[in-house]
């Protein structure tokens, strides 16, 4: 039975991914900081499927624990999906440097720290897939979201480099940029329906992307073009826009 490790397993996107993989007959290791939230999620998956579901504590910001965490896993996964992320209130981020550090620690440093350990193992074994959930916010810095966006830009660049390094070892690395997703982070916002994906759509995109060994996946096809246009706007004009 193939095994997937989901890092940050309590988010809405992670839950949808877990359901998808359980339905496809994979065994799951769910890792998250808050085990109290994680247990009902594991219980749900056990009712839904025959899959073997394990839960384990994991703190993305506690870098020194990462190697021990990975080494303690009884059997190593065939696929690791890094879903955790942290988005602070942008107004808070402008004045509160602790929030800035937390944003970078979770979205960038934490992800790099754990995936380095995973990469070492996968490279040695000469197989496996690593998926990172990054963000369209990292495609170009915008005033509304640039601290989070710059951390995600760093993560996107890291994943690209990792892909480049691991390709010859036969290890697949995939970057996912979901765009708007209907989750607890966005449920109070009025998002354009045609540009907003359900978490289940992200899960399907991840599953299919891994099967087909894609490099970068946008959940809804429009986002690839929207972000391309945004990236192409010349800086002298862009800086005056209220984005």
């Amino acid at each position: 039975m193939k095994k997937v490790l989901i890092l940050g397993a309590t988010s809405d996107i992670a839950q949808a991914i877990a359901r998808k993989y359980a339905a496809e007959g994979w065994d799951l290791v769910l890792a998250a900081r808050n085990l109290e939230l994680l247990e009902p999620i594991a219980g749900d998956l056990r009712v839904r499927s025959e899959a073997d579901i394990q839960t384990v504590g994991f703190d993305a910001a506690d870098f020194s624990s990462h190697r021990g965490f990975y080494e303690s896993l009884e059997t190593k996964p065939d696929l690791v999906i890094c879903v955790f992320g942290y988005m602070a209130d942008q107004r808070l981020v402008r004045t509160d440097f602790d929030e800035v550090q937390k944003t970078i620690a979770v979205n960038y440093t934490g992800a790099v720290s754990i995936l380095n350990v995973v990469a070492e193992d996968f490279e040695q074994r000469g197989r496996g897939s690593i998926v990172g959930i990054s963000s369209v916010a990292g495609d170009r810095g915008r005033q509304s979201n640039y601290i989070y966006g710059s951390a995600k830009a760093g993560f996107t660049a890291y994943l690209a480099g990792l892909r480049n390094r691991l390709a010859k070892a036969g290890v697949h690395v995939m970057t996912v940029k979901p765009g708007f997703v209907r989750t607890k982070m966005t449920e109070s916002l009025e998002l354009p329906a045609s540009l907003t994906a359900e978490p289940e759509q992200v899960a399907t995109a991840v599953y299919q992307g891994v099967e087909k060994k894609h490099n970068t996946v946008y959940t809804l096809w429009m986002w690839r073009w929207i972000m391309l246009i945004i990236k192409l706007i010349p800086e002298p004009i862009f800086k005056k826009m209220g984005m």
Partner: peptide, 19 residues
Amino acid sequence: MVKLIVVNEGLGEVDMRKI
């Protein structure tokens, strides 16, 4: 499109939404 990107993530200013 510009407007919808601003709605994006984290500004937390939108309390009411159409439904």
